[in-house]
């Protein structure tokens, strides 16, 4: 077997990208990995050694296990709710023949233009005890005592769903691209009503896009820091905020590093599971 000879210059083109990855990604990750095995000796002191103390802390302290579980639960809940909300919108954007389709798509993803910090503060205004939502509910006489949403898990979920909605719409509209109208028409001609058509044709064929949306929002949610921190109001603890707290407030870098690695593992598991699922589903709906 002969191989095409590639001039060295082709490999040379990879150097800038590889260099950036190496210095901005691989090196810090290795540094974090190494740091996780050092010992914290209080007051910001770190002993360079090789111990699994930090990991022992993470896996034995019920507090950290709860934080990890809260993070995963938040990721699952936010990704599922976001995809359910984004699905009809994405389907509409893909299907519409309106000449405003481009404009509508831009409108749907326009919230991305506002930083998630600003949007989080917006949600604090809306969800707070004296906030817009509670004022309206009170004004309508629906409730006397304010509905607790701020400083709550539920408030974090609501805010994150809105913040990640555009990402889900983007992922899903591109995933729905090959949806072919004639398939639904064929199903209709064979006697399938609206609901059957959706369940037996549209939904299966849009599953790859749904999975992409789920994975994207899950990954974004479990790494979200600002929104859980601000809307959680010191009552909702997730891995990202815990890492920040350990690193900057407690100066316990080994523990922060260990928690970071836990988050990386959660990422890895999610990406692998979704990747396998995605491959199967892609094969299934492509008819091969």
């Amino acid at each position: 077997m002969t191989r095409t000879w590639r001039p060295p210059v082709a490999w040379g083109l990879l150097v800038p990208g590889l260099a950036v990855l190496l210095f901005a990604y691989a090196a810090p990750m290795l540094w974090v990995l190494r740091m996780a095995f050092n010992r914290f000796i209080g007051g910001g002191g770190i002993e360079i050694t090789f111990t699994v103390d930090s990991f022992a802390d993470v896996f034995t302290d019920p507090y950290y296990l709860r934080v990890a579980w809260t993070t995963v639960k938040l990721g699952l809940l936010v990704s599922v709710v976001t995809v359910i909300v984004a699905y009809p919108l994405s389907l509409f954007l893909v299907r519409t023949t309106s000449r405003f389709r481009g404009l509508l798509t831009i409108l749907a993803i326009a919230p991305m233009l506002v930083s998630s910090v600003a949007r989080t503060y917006g949600w604090m205004v809306v969800l707070g005890n004296q906030g817009l939502l509670n004022s309206v509910l009170k004004g309508l006489g629906l409730t006397d005592t304010p509905v607790q949403l701020a400083n709550q898990f539920s408030g974090v979920v609501i805010a994150l769903v809105q913040i990640f909605l555009p990402y889900a719409v983007l992922a899903m509209t591109s995933g729905f691209g090959r949806l072919d109208d004639t398939l639904e028409q064929a199903a209709a001609s064979l006697g399938a009503g609206r609901i059957t058509r959706f369940l037996r044709v549209t939904l299966p064929l849009t599953l790859p896009g749904v999975l992409t949306g789920l994975l994207l929002v899950f990954v974004l949610s479990i790494s979200a820091y600002v929104t859980p921190r601000l809307i959680g109001g010191g009552r909702v603890f997730v891995l990202a905020s815990e890492i920040y707290d350990q690193a900057t407030n407690q100066l316990n870098w080994p523990l922060a590093a260990a928690l970071s690695l836990v988050l990386v593992v959660v990422f890895g598991v999610a990406v692998t599971v979704f990747g396998l699922l995605q491959r199967r589903v892609e094969r299934w709906v492509s008819g091969r």
Partner: peptide, 10 residues
């Protein structure tokens, strides 16, 4: 019968 056949790929 459609021009593209419109068979359900899944």
């Amino acid at each position: 019968v459609f021009q593209s056949f419109a068979l359900l790929p899944h």
